[in-house]
Design a protein around this nucleic acid. Structure first.
Length: 271
DNA sequence: CAGCGCCCCTGCCCGC
DNA sequence: TGCGGGCAGGGGCGCT
């Protein structure tokens, strides 16, 4: 489910339910996630107050006065509020209960997600320290992409999806941004002009912002915290539409694989 | 260092 | 209806 918009939507929905509340109980049913859930998670959290929550890349960071709970949703993860006492279903790996009966539940069939405890500064953590800027950070613009791409032979799509360059642009939104910018996904990143990168950075921001407004993109089973699906799927131009007509020129969209990821583009609209 | 592949894992869809 | 193969929204890591 998650790309950046789904993470933002998830966080936004959770915040009002859990900020300022004290943890009363932690249950870990399955610690074998992307990295093992720390064995002392319960000791770290119980009795402590969750101060606030924010997002860095696709990581959710929940602040306590002595550290941070860091959660990544991977490909299939989901974090939601459940009624206290709701029996766990398959793949409900971690529950964090608060004193008022609110319960935070982490579910992840594929277990590519993670639930970690950070005692130090989050930005110093090895998973975050090498990350590029957020797409909505003012430093992320056409000039930034132009400068960092000089001499690079990697495809522009993989360049855009590289977390060291910019975070949060996953496969769906990379495909969409490139279509809107008229750029062929496999074109070498180093051979694209400053002007085109200007369009690409703007389109990436627009697509992400629009997806957040629509509550994310529901492909299979993503639902926000109010149980609503994301409506951005209706606005996808190319992702998931290989072989179907381009919405601008009717030419059948071409589908290839780039870095093992499905890549869809229009041979006429994207050069 | 850049640039690839691989891999973690389950679910689902398709073709036979 | 059952089974094998391929694919899926992520991303760290190890190899060349």
């Amino acid at each position: 489910m998650p790309e950046l918009p789904e993470v933002v939507v998830t966080l936004k929905g959770l915040i009002p339910h859990i900020t300022g509340k004290r943890v009363s109980k932690v249950v870990v049913r399955e610690p074998r996630l992307r990295w093992p859930v720390p064995g002392d998670l319960s000791e770290q959290l119980c009795g402590k107050v969750l101060i606030d929550g924010r997002q860095r890349a696709k990581y959710l960071l929940f602040r306590f006065d002595h550290g941070h709970l860091m959660i990544h949703l991977g490909m299939s993860g989901n974090l939601r509020i459940v009624q206290a006492g709701t029996p766990p279903a398959k793949h409900d790996h971690v529950d964090i209960s608060f004193e008022d009966g609110v319960q935070l539940r982490f579910t992840d069939p594929r277990r590519f997600g993670s639930v970690l405890w950070l005692s130090g500064k989050p930005e110093q953590h090895k998973l975050l320290i090498h990350l590029g800027p957020e797409p909505f950070d003012p430093v992320f613009d056409g000039n930034y992409l132009y400068r960092l791409s000089r001499g690079k032979t990697v495809s522009v799509k993989q360049f855009l999806m590289d977390n060291k360059i910019v975070v949060g642009v996953g496969n769906i939104y990379a495909n969409e941004s490139l279509f809107l910018s008229g750029i062929r996904p496999k074109k070498a990143a180093g051979r694209i002009s400053r002007k085109i990168y200007e369009a690409l950075s703007e389109n990436a921001k627009t697509v992400l912002k629009r997806a957040i407004e629509q509550g994310g993109t529901t492909l299979k089973d993503f639902v926000g915290n109010e149980g609503k699906p994301g409506y951005f799927k209706q606005e996808l131009y190319v992702y998931g539409r290989g072989g179907m007509p381009c919405l601008r020129c009717k030419t059948p969209l071409k589908e290839i694989r780039l870095g093992q990821r499905s890549t869809v583009y229009c041979v006429l609209c994207q050069k």
